[in-house]
């Protein structure tokens, strides 16, 4: 079956007093991979479960291509799902697990075995097809789960924190593999994770959620460089909170007047949100604006951590070749390379 678009319109869900999802609108194009990113309890998993039909919504609709599936039970939705906890059937071998969906669709025995083996080969497990889940490592189990979800040729692939239970090395390999498969099969995919690196690395677009609302959804570059809200700015990547004084719609940061990008109320003390790579550290003659605390060599770039006289810590990320002169304890001046910033009130 060809992958289609997935659309959520005004989907809300409450659990008692808690609002898990608040009027979520989301459209995923055919063959697109979208990640929902957010801290735990932000509603991302609820959204995915509503799409899967494992949870009902209080209001709003879920559309698959042109079909309204809001009230269609889970087993008739034709969506493949991969869970954080693998959730393979412990009594079935790897190949039988992959076959399960096809068996439910009454696909004839030899042909379903054939497609299951093909899928296991696709995830690199063709030699372990007869093994049972408890004989496979976590990474292998999750590959089987992925093959099982893809075996039914789902209209939408749903990934619920599929990598969270795995080791760092396996996680990186498997996420590349998920992306490779997703691109080659062209399966519309919704991917839920709390790991921003994971989300940014393999998704076409990333939606950042907080308190049941979608704060911003865009391609990773825009999300990182041009966050729409202070929540997104703080959640995605590392962010400095630089104490500064605002006057009108400008703010003075390290002696430079910078325009304030977001609406804020009046003047006074604010925190300016600046990424480490936008801050340059220079040695000063005599007393400077800050003192270097540590310098960590990271390869191509180095991280310089400075402390302002009032105690605030500032992180800077600079190309390593320009940081050779900088040593802990030295007085330095700071400058920023931005013309506009987001601020929050202290």
């Amino acid at each position: 079956m060809k992958s289609g678009t997935l659309e959520l319109n005004g989907v809300s869900r409450r659990f008692g007093q808690t609002v898990a999802l608040d009027n979520l609108n989301l459209r995923i194009g055919a063959g697109e991979m979208v990640a929902l990113l957010g801290p735990s309890g932000c509603g991302k998993t609820t959204a995915l479960r509503i799409v899967a039909g494992l949870e009902r919504s209080d209001s709003g609709s879920v559309k698959l291509q042109d079909r309204d599936v809001t009230n269609v039970p889970a087993h008739l939705r034709n969506m493949g799902m991969v869970f954080q906890s693998y959730s393979l059937f412990p009594n079935l071998s790897a190949v039988e697990n992959v076959e399960f969906g096809l068996k439910m669709r009454k696909v004839e025995r030899t042909s379903r075995r054939k497609s299951a083996l093909e899928l296991l080969e696709l995830v690199g497990l063709n030699t372990q097809s007869k093994r049972f889940p408890h004989q496979l490592s976590g990474g292998q189990q999750q590959r089987v789960a992925l093959a099982r979800a893809l075996a039914i040729q789902p209209e939408v692939l749903l990934l619920d924190e599929p990598l969270s239970a795995l080791d760092a090395q396996v996680r990186t390999n498997l996420r590349e593999e998920i992306r490779r498969l997703q691109l080659s099969l062209g399966t519309t995919t919704l991917f839920v994770t709390h790991d921003q690196e994971e989300a940014m690395a393999i998704s076409d677009r990333v939606g950042v959620m907080s308190n049941g609302r979608l704060e911003q959804i865009d391609i990773p570059d825009v999300l990182y460089n041009n966050p729409a809200s202070t929540f997104v700015a703080n959640f995605v990547g590392t962010m400095n909170h630089i104490p500064a004084i605002a006057s009108g719609d400008t703010v003075n940061i390290f002696g430079k007047q910078v325009r304030i990008k977001n609406s804020h109320s009046g003047s006074g003390e604010v925190s300016a949100l600046v990424r480490p790579e936008s801050i340059t550290v220079m040695r000063s003659q005599g007393a400077g604006q800050a003192k270097i605390v540590t310098r960590s060599f990271l390869g191509a770039s180095s991280q310089i951590v400075c402390q302002l006289p009032d105690g605030a810590i500032i992180q800077s990320l600079m190309p390593s070749y320009s940081t050779g002169e900088l040593h802990p304890g030295e007085e330095v001046n700071l400058s920023i390379s931005l013309d506009e910033v987001l601020v929050t009130h202290v």
Partner: peptide, 22 residues
């Protein structure tokens, strides 16, 4: 993990009776 494996089963196209049986 009875809950997740039965959810996985339903997601793969098995209704409740089939989920219980298989």
């Amino acid at each position: 993990p009875l809950k997740t494996i039965s959810e996985a089963s339903r997601g793969l196209g098995a209704n409740w009776p089939k989920t219980i049986f298989y």
